[in-house]
Write a protein that binds this DNA or RNA. Structure first.
Length: 849
RNA sequence: GCGAAAGUGGCGGAAUUGGUAGACGCGCAGGAUUUAGGAUCCUGUGGCUUCAUGCCGUGGGGGUUCGAGUCCCCCCUUUCGCACCA
């Protein structure tokens, strides 16, 4: 690095110096019992990273820097800010990487963590290294397991069968991301679906609360909306369709079984066997002309007619053989086969055929639908393809009862072909028909959620073992809390093999254990838990890392939680945040926490792209942060990242763009040091009265930055400071210390090292973050004394006139009229009205002659 | 296909929420300084033309208003989610 003649600012020197000083002073974190006694707390949380072997990428740094800037800002306003960071190091990601590199994850992770720690220190974040977590540390996952046990004891962790992707060649379970267009990523064999027993958390029990609580949270709207849609509440009804025996169907041929449905009730006497469907449109039940079961539906065999058994079995086999990913990606063309069976439409009293088709999903609703082709697009397509009847039961504007349908009509209108409900508006018919069916025992209203229970089992190695012991006599038994953690044994061969279960199932000396309840020989659960469980509670652990015997200390929880501000990526807006909320709620209900929402405020940062494209290794457009920091320093890099776009939207990384903040910081350094040098001889403020224009600009800048910072308006805050610096330096003038001290404080969150150095040169001892107060602005000092008024005629700018601030309309008009150009436009025109916006604009509305 | 967000100079982006569009920065051009390069410092920089505070201009088209980047309607494009949710 060459000297650059700008006051001798040498970032690498300044940054090394202050990173050392922070450690000596313990400025960044809380030591001893400081956390226990903090009064004016602010918990600034950022999503902890997965410590990859590649090291920090720009996205990480962007996320952490924004959070750090926000945290440092709050610190300067007098809060005691806790800003911890840790490592989310379990999971398939590191496991796969370890497999590929032939390194054991237990060796890989510590070196990755060490590398991340070094890089994180280098970017100058105010991280509290005395309160860090690593999810792979047994002292941490001991409590992850403890949480599992609390939920298990409360009946919120249950075991049930669920489908998984299965590679018949590797004989192993695959994660969704290991299935590449229907084939195993390793051996290219088509992937199948299999059902195995897995552990689930019953998050659906909390659906209503997870939804309702959203209202009161200070989260960005998009995130709330994403959660809202994911939970996917829909109001509708469960309707019961009695299954008909072949005899009943014969009797009803021609097909009017019960003429007046009102008389029928539950009458058909079908020995209680029935098909339940969920629908959000009970009003359209009269238009249900057939029924569809999902291929996995348990009743498929029962309703299948002998003649159709073979075709149905074949169809089911090909539908269920598809792996999960492919099944969800089927093209729009509908396939299906009739079962030959019939059931009774409880509204019309007519028999309708039962089909099997894979466009109906077992996972949603009841796995069966009443098909209303007239008013549902998917049903319409299917009915057309299969030649099934389409009946109109809703008439839109201009439609009659018999207007033919060329596509499904899902809009509002009047009921038709619906018996006694004809003529009723859809909105009224919905509750009316649902109530009518309920009265007759054919249904009930029901709220349905799209949200599924949370599957936490992983047939993998690199995760915390699920703390359960399977005993033949007692069933699944929780590991006694005193025996936690269940330590993940070091297994050299952790590759999934053809056993089809977790690699832990090969470690007999590990899984063999006596039942803690009856003492009989038993077996440990060999699945590990989902990484999302690790990350669902880490923020609870941070303040309590000094406590070995409890997951979190009650007093610290009261003092520090819920989190004041959480910042992280949009990719976690749904799952992670939902799981963390669920775990917090469950722990609250079980008496472990006093609050039931973990994050008071959440903001998602945007994404950094480069030259208009996503950064990726394959495109070769990845920025290596270390190189930028080496060349420009961490302060410049931080400032540039915060400057290049609105934080919540991200921005485009342009290599040359860093020159702006680079030059800016150098000029700040030069301006401040020369202000100090100039002031030194006389030891006063550099002499002379304060420049009123500079003072006004300063107060305006403080106001602007103070308002922007809490809203993460970093790019505009930096722009405002640049403007101020330009004003201070205009015409080569030298600033006085009092003109720049506030600037140094305001820039400190962005360029903390440089700010420290300048703070010291301004004659202060210790850290700026401990000694400085965020500058206050005086509203009266922000006011302009004279203003430039825009003068318009009919909304078009014709002049600008200068006058004293706050002048009245008469004065403004007089000034404007004296302008030649304005006079020209007003001459000979009839003045209709005058709009006056004080200090801004004067608009003459005229009628041209 | 559905859902969400967004379209402003050569580029990244501002705009007190209906009041002078283009702040701040990059880039570019001219100049100063320098042995040279780099760095630094001034000055200029939406387009057009008849060089005037003249006309046009915030994806396109309509509308409301004294006044629209901002509000309303229609259309187009891009990005990101979700993929048949009954």
């Amino acid at each position: 690095m060459t000297s650059d003649g700008t006051g001798g600012y040498n970032p690498s020197e300044v940054e090394a110096k202050w990173q050392g000083r922070w450690e000596e002073l313990g400025t960044n974190g809380f030591t001893g019992d400081a956390l226990q006694t903090a009064e004016n707390r602010y918990y600034q949380l950022m999503m902890f990273p997965y410590p990859s072997a590649e090291g920090l990428h720009v996205g990480n740094i962007y996320a952490f820097t924004g959070a750090d800037v926000h945290g440092r800002f709050h610190r300067l306003t007098g809060k005691q800010v806790f800003e911890p960071i840790g490592f989310d190091a379990f999971g398939i990601h590191s496991e796969n990487f370890a497999l590929k590199q032939g390194v054991h994850p237990m060796d890989l992770i510590p070196s990755n963590v060490a590398n991340f720690t070094k890089q994180l220190r280098r970017i100058g974040g105010m991280f509290d290294w005395d309160h860090s977590v690593d999810t792979t540390d047994p002292d941490y996952y001991r409590w992850t397991q403890w949480i599992f046990i609390q939920l298990f004891n409360a009946g919120l962790a249950v075991r049930k069968e669920a489908p998984v992707n299965w590679c018949p060649s590797c004989m192993t379970v695959l994660a969704n991301e290991q299935v590449i267009s229907g084939r195993c990523e390793r051996c290219d064999t088509p992937v199948e679906q299999r059902r195995i027993a897995q552990w689930f958390f019953r998050i659906t029990e909390y659906a209503e609360r997870l939804l309702g609580n959203l209202e009161g949270l200070d989260w960005s709207d998009t995130t709330k909306k994403a959660q809202h849609n994911w939970i996917g509440r829909s109001e509708g009804a469960i309707l019961r369709f009695p299954i008909l025996t072949p005899e009943q169907v014969d009797e009803a041929d021609p097909p009017t079984l019960v003429l007046d449905p009102g008389a029928g009730g539950q009458d058909p006497g079908v020995d209680g066997s029935q098909i339940d469907v969920f629908t959000t449109r009970p009003d359209t039940v009269f238009g249900a002309t057939y029924m569809v079961l999902s291929p996995e539906h348990p009743l498929v065999d029962e309703v299948t007619d002998e003649g159709q058994a073979e075709a149905v079995a074949a169809y089911r086999e090909q539908a269920t053989a598809k792996d999960l990913v492919a099944r969800q990606k089927v093209e729009k063309t509908k396939t299906g086969v009739p079962t030959g069976g019939f059931c009774l439409n409880p509204a019309t009293g007519q028999p309708i055929p039962i089909w099997v088709a894979d466009y109906v999903l077992m996972e949603y609703g009841t796995g069966a639908i009443m098909a209303v082709p007239g008013h549902d697009e998917r049903d319409f397509d299917f009915a057309e393809a299969m030649g099934l009847p389409i009946v109109r039961v809703v008439a839109g504007e201009g439609d009659g009862a018999d207007t033919p349908l060329s596509e499904a009509y899902a809009g509002d209108g009047e009921m038709v072909n619906s018996g006694r409900f004809d003529g009723m508006a859809v909105t009224e018919a919905k509750p009316a028909i649902a109530a009518w069916l309920a009265e007759r025992g054919s249904g009930e209203t029901k709220v349905n959620y799209r949200l599924h229970d949370w599957c936490i089992s992983r047939q993998r190695y690199w995760g915390p073992p699920i703390p359960i012991i399977h005993c033949e006599a007692c069933g699944p038994v929780a590991v006694p809390e005193a025996d936690l953690p269940v330590v993940l044994p070091r297994v050299e061969d952790f590759k999934p093999d053809d056993s089809g279960v977790s690699p832990l199932a090969r470690v007999e000396e590990w899984y063999r254990i006596d039942c803690p309840q009856c003492g009989a020989a038993a077996r440990r659960e060999t699945d590990v838990s989902d990484t999302f469980l690790d990350s669902s509670w880490y923020f609870l652990r941070y303040p309590s890392t000094d406590f070995a015997d409890v997951p979190f200390d009650a007093e610290l929880m009261r003092r520090w939680l819920p989190v004041d501000c959480y910042i992280g990526g949009n990719e976690h807006a749904v799952l992670h945040l939902l799981y963390a909320r669920f775990v917090t709620m469950a722990l609250h209900d079980l008496g472990h926490l006093e609050f039931d929402e973990p994050f008071t405020r959440f903001r998602a940062h945007g994404m950094i792209i480069r030259d208009g494209a996503k950064m990726s290794k394959s495109k070769g457009n990845v920025i290596v942060p270390d190189e930028i920091i080496e060349q420009y320093g961490a302060d410049t890099f931080r400032t540039y990242l915060m400057f290049l776009g609105p934080y919540e939207e991200g921005g485009d990384y342009q290599d040359e763009g860093i020159q702006g903040p680079h030059g800016f910081l150098h000029r700040v350094f030069e301006t401040v040091t020369s202000a100090v040098d100039r002031a030194a001889p006389s030891d006063d403020d550099g002499g002379g009265a304060a420049d009123p224009d500079i003072e006004r600009k300063l107060h305006q800048t403080i106001r602007q930055v103070t308002r922007q910072m809490p809203e993460l308006g970093f790019n505009t805050s930096i722009a405002a400071m640049m403007e101020y610096l330009n004003a201070v330096r205009a015409g080569g003038r030298t600033a006085s210390p009092s003109e720049v001290e506030a600037l140094v404080v305001m820039i400190a969150p962005f360029a903390p090292h440089m700010a420290e150095e300048l703070w010291a040169r301004l004659g202060h001892d210790g850290s700026i973050f401990e000694g400085a107060n965020w500058p206050a602005f005086d509203e009266t000092k922000t006011r302009e004394t004279s203003v430039k008024l825009a003068v318009q005629v009919n909304g078009k700018l014709r002049a600008t006139v200068e006058g004293p601030a706050g002048m009245d309309q008469d004065a403004a008009e007089a000034a404007a009229r004296s302008d030649e150009n304005v006079a020209r436009y007003l001459d000979g025109a009839a003045l209709k009205r005058v709009i006056y916006v004080p200090n801004r604009l004067l608009n003459f509305v005229v009628e041209q002659a």
